[in-house]
Nucleic acid binder design. Structure first.
Lengths: 192, 192
DNA sequence: CACTGCATGTAATTTGTTACATGATTCA
DNA sequence: TGAATCATGTAACAAATTACATGCAGTG
């Protein structure tokens, strides 16, 4: 199946943990899968409709004000099938590294700024993951999934720490570059 | 400018280092920006045409068999402008972590396999970056860009090493999960 | 009663990939 | 001369985002 099915996997997966509405799905996906996955509104509703058509999910009655979707047995099987398929790598697109690659055009100072910002973002991610970890520990409802969810949190932490370490290296290197540039102007005159 | 312009940046940037053909652009981008950027054929030619229309690049004469594009002064200015714009983060989509998150559905053994594969891929990336580093040092033509390019290589290395470290942690955790699962079957009977 | 948040959905647009069509040049 | 590689481009398709339209329910 060359189809993407990626959104289906995320949605069926979320519903396998608990039934919820389309709106709640978006929130859940943003809050708990956010650091490695994203799904937009315009994607969620059509996919839900498609999944319902195929009998993978059904609207559960009871709650009148919102439509709660729950996964069916067929859906669970489909989810397992989807999860077993090889993960297709998304093409990389790192705007920061693109800018640094052509840093000679941008200038060392501007690059420094970019790296500093990305370092701060990584610190933020790290803090967010710490709370996610605490939340996970405090919620006994997630018991069977917790060890697996922990793996994804740990992945985020490793990656954020690596980003911070790299940023520190990069900042040092950029400082050196700037110092060299200055030492090439013996009179100390301010060009630019 | 909400437009993507991302492809324009990559193409102008590559041409700022040296003039080349559309075909060569794709190869260059794949080989040197590959670990953090991707650009497809169907993107490169239309973008080149657009850039030419805007006077950012021009076809340089001389070589008859292929169209060599070179960046113009207008193009250089545009490139600096583009590089100065904030890098728009691409929505994250990590198929491996998505699968692990719902690992309870997939089973510890299958998860282990996935992590192992991703560890191998990270090792491969690390090896590729080592050669890229060596190539860079051996090419004096890249002198002004080398320190910046090194930053991107270093970023890739940090990230790959983090992926490997995490994989080792994750494998240990998964082994424990499997061991627990076995110890929960005192009689040694095979459920499922 | 107006505002905010929950909720559902559609349409337009952007973005990017893949596959295809085509042809020149090089080398065995 | 036939295969591989370099080269340029287009068309069809796929995926996803954004903005828009709409309405209800609770609350100050």
């Amino acid at each position: 199946m060359p189809r993407s099915d990626q959104s289906q996997t995320a949605i069926l997966g979320a519903l396998s943990i608990m039934p919820m509405s389309g709106y709640a799905l978006r929130e859940r996906i943003r809050d708990t899968l956010g650091h490695f996955w994203s799904e937009s509104f315009g994607q969620i509703y059509p996919t839900l409709a498609e999944l319902e058509r195929q009998g993978m999910v059904r609207r559960s009655l009871g709650d009148s004000r919102s439509t709660t979707f729950e996964i069916t047995d067929v859906g669970i099987n489909r989810l397992r099938e989807l999860l077993a398929e090889p993960a297709q790598a998304s093409r990389p697109r790192n705007g920061l590294l693109l800018r640094l690659f052509f840093g000679a055009q941008l200038g060392a100072g501007r690059c420094r700024q970019l790296v500093l910002e990305s370092r701060e973002q990584a610190e933020g991610r790290l803090a967010g993951l710490a709370t996610a970890r605490a939340d996970l520990m405090g919620d006994p409802g997630l018991a069977p999934d917790a060890p697996y969810i922990l793996l994804t949190i740990s992945a985020g932490e490793h990656s954020a720490r690596a980003a911070i370490d790299w940023a520190d290296d990069a900042l040092a290197a950029l400082d050196e570059l700037e110092a060299e540039a200055v030492s090439n102007i013996p009179s100390g005159g301010d060009t630019e």
